[in-house]
Nucleic acid binder design. Structure first.
Length: 292
DNA sequence: AATAGTCGCAACCGCCAGGGG
DNA sequence: CCCCCTGGCGGTTGCGACTAT
């Protein structure tokens, strides 16, 4: 299918806020002819708008039985519940709320509810406790570092296009992680938690009973505050300001990690150290592929 | 009182699916 | 089967109102 021009990409099509006069024209037309065939509505109603704009105005504002007052606690609760179940399917959620439009629900979520959840320590995207998510991020971070390190065994970092001696994927990941971490309040100290998914690999004992592998030594107390304060990422992002933090040369068989001689001692180094320990202790589980 | 920053909402944009020719 | 049109949807933007400094 070819690229279709936008339906409003025409001359003499007004944009922006609707006036009372325009509303009256649209209302008069729809009350006489009903909805449908929105493309023809502007012409027949005497409006210099595109059909799409008319439909939106009708759906979100002029339609009868719309509620314009604030959301009730019951409505809030329903939105949160439905969002946790089906995600941002606003039209479906709005269908469960008489008098509300998808736009209403979406705006209310974006401006109020998501912030409210975040303040209560709940991630508005996953509806999981933020502290739990940070643990997952820690695991992913370790995996990413390991993956990036392993990649250097086949493709030296110095060959990564456009980023000098840095791996662009790693830089992007680090930037995103930093955004996430900075966007949430620092949580209370991590509580003991179930091993991450990758450690829950199927492991059968002699009797054939499915059993969990022994809990590996989790990287304990990743110091987020310290991490952010030290800004381990900055070295990655400001490639010429400092060297990559001790990127390592990796043996082809991943058997040995060799710290670069002169990089700053960093969070990443610490992670790599711990990763090395884990790799050696649980080689059977992580074997030839990565955690995720 | 003036200015900057933030918030809330209406509207727009671009993509997609479904239906008709 | 292909192409085009339309309606619907979710994400994003623009801007007026409000608040803080």
């Amino acid at each position: 299918m070819g690229i279709r021009p936008p339906c409003c990409d025409k001359l003499n099509v007004k944009k922006g806020l609707w006036t009372a006069e325009e509303d009256a024209k649209l209302l008069a037309y729809v009350s006489t002819h009903g909805t449908g065939n929105w493309t023809n509505v502007p012409k027949k109603a005497g409006l210099k708008r595109c059909g799409k704009s008319c439909r939106l105005r009708w759906t979100n504002y002029l339609r009868p039985n719309l509620k314009h007052e604030g959301f009730t606690p019951q409505e809030e609760e329903l939105i949160v519940t439905l969002h946790a179940t089906i995600g941002s399917r606003w039209s479906i959620i709005a269908n469960q709320l008489p008098g509300r439009t998808d736009n209403d629900v979406k705006n209310y979520w974006n401006t109020k509810l998501s912030k409210k959840l975040a303040l209560n320590g709940i991630d508005p995207v996953t509806h999981r406790p933020i502290s739990e998510i940070k643990q997952s991020i820690t695991t992913l971070h370790i995996a990413a570092i390991t993956a990036a390190t392993a990649a250097t065994s086949t493709q030296p970092l110095s060959s990564a296009a456009g980023v000098g001696h840095h791996d662009s994927r790693l830089i992007t990941l680090n930037r995103d992680l930093k955004k996430i971490l900075l966007s949430h309040p620092i949580p209370p100290p991590l509580e003991p938690a179930a091993p991450p998914v990758h450690w829950n690999a199927v492991n059968r004992n002699a009797a054939g009973v499915r059993a969990l592998p022994p809990a590996p030594p989790r990287p304990q107390e990743l110091e987020w505050i310290q991490f952010l304060a030290e800004d381990a990422f900055s070295c990655l992002e400001e490639q010429d300001a400092c060297r990559a933090p001790s990127f390592v040369a990796v043996d082809a068989d991943f058997g040995g990690l060799e710290a670069a001689a002169d990089g700053p001692s960093s969070f990443i180094e610490e992670i790599l150290d711990r990763d090395r320990e884990i790799m050696s202790e649980f080689a059977g589980f992580v074997g030839g592929h990565y955690y995720f």
